[in-house]
Design a protein around this nucleic acid. Structure first.
Lengths: 202, 202
DNA sequence: ATTGAATGTAAGAACGCACTTACATGATAA
DNA sequence: TTATCATGTAAGTGCGTTCTTACATTCAAT
């Protein structure tokens, strides 16, 4: 493979560029992502990516799709590992969300950059994640009506995304917070939210 | 004043640039902020801002300070208006946080851009806000130990910041969410968190 | 073996950016 | 009035960006 990477024709540049994009983003953030940097890091000329992606956004979107795939997979396996209690499953999933986002240095900005109807595969993955969270939330809050579930889910998403972004931007009151601590706080916060929601007055 | 703005010497360019920066940011976000755009919008040459600010970051920081001042003021008056119940005060403050952030289109990215010891006035305002939230949290969760308060406060910040950023990036499950609805959900979420936290097992 | 398509390179156009320099203007104070 | 200084302008430097164009190389099918 490393021999192939040295030859004139790379052989697998498309996938390499996507992987390299995620690697770059994990260091400089979505905001610092650029086609030129990715190309340089992949050891290829700055025009080469345009043989595989029509423009910058398309490459970013493909990377975003791979990111969401990985995040969803982590969330699913984390829910599985949490056992059968629905609140455990939901809380654990939120922790996985934060861990994955922190590890990849990807925050809410990705969703801002790829908002719009033109990013079809990304939107599909987004819907998949939302559907998964929806069913988890449904199980964890069985008293919730059909219209309350998205509201509750938005709270849980806000907590998870908030922790990810705050970590990502060094915004915690007491710094020195590790990845797993941040994720742990998110799982605890989800429990608080669910428990507090259960005893609201309607 | 409009006469003054037309004359060769503006007369109050420094303050105008700060106001214009916030106006620009509220439309294009912190990421889209640039000295050139601010200068153009203020009707002044692109070099003029450098008579008042040494570099881009300094202007951004001054705008950030004004933003935080306004946000803190809104939070304080919102807490005041909420009455004497400490949970009401805290929840209402979170709503004010979200409303102000949404109105100004400023999210967690600002804290990322202005992280660092060199931004002294900004850090002072940050500390002021944290101190205010700390005391509110303390009142709302009287059972919390000294070390638990920052943890709980981080959850509340994550919720508020998460709602702001998600709104800001169009990331809600059901869109068509207005500013006040987003803020309302944040206040509700804070209540859930506090109530859920109160009945945790230690 | 030859040819054509896919995929790489090198170079550069066109742009926006932060910031600088030389000069112009106008307020202020002697 | 005149000199000084703060504050504006015009123009430009240098960089990084996206994306294009003309050409080079290699692979694959005939």
């Amino acid at each position: 493979m490393s021999e192939r990477e040295r030859s004139y024709h790379h052989g697998d540049l498309r996938e390499t560029l996507i992987r390299t994009s995620l690697e770059l983003i994990s260091e400089v953030g979505v905001h610092g992502f650029s086609v030129a940097k990715v190309a340089k890091r992949a050891g290829v000329s700055s025009g080469a990516p345009y043989r595989h992606f029509p423009d910058r956004e398309s490459l970013l979107m493909e990377a975003g799709v791979v990111f969401l795939n990985g995040q969803i997979a982590e969330m699913r396996s984390s829910a599985e590992a949490a056992g059968s209690d629905p609140v455990d499953r939901l809380a654990s999933t939120a922790g996985a969300y934060v861990r994955y986002a922190v590890d990849h240095f990807i925050g809410v900005e990705l969703f801002g950059a790829l908002r719009g109807a033109e990013f079809v595969p990304f939107n599909e993955r987004k819907r998949e994640m939302i559907g998964f969270l929806f069913s988890l939330t449904q199980d964890a809050a069985p008293r919730a009506t059909w219209s309350q579930i998205p509201e509750l889910m938005d709270v849980l998403l806000a907590v998870s995304q908030g922790f990810s972004d705050m970590y990502h931007q060094g915004m915690f009151a007491q710094t020195k917070l590790g990845r797993d601590e941040a994720a742990g706080r998110a799982t605890a916060a989800v429990r608080y939210v669910i428990q507090g929601w259960e005893l609201r007055e309607e």
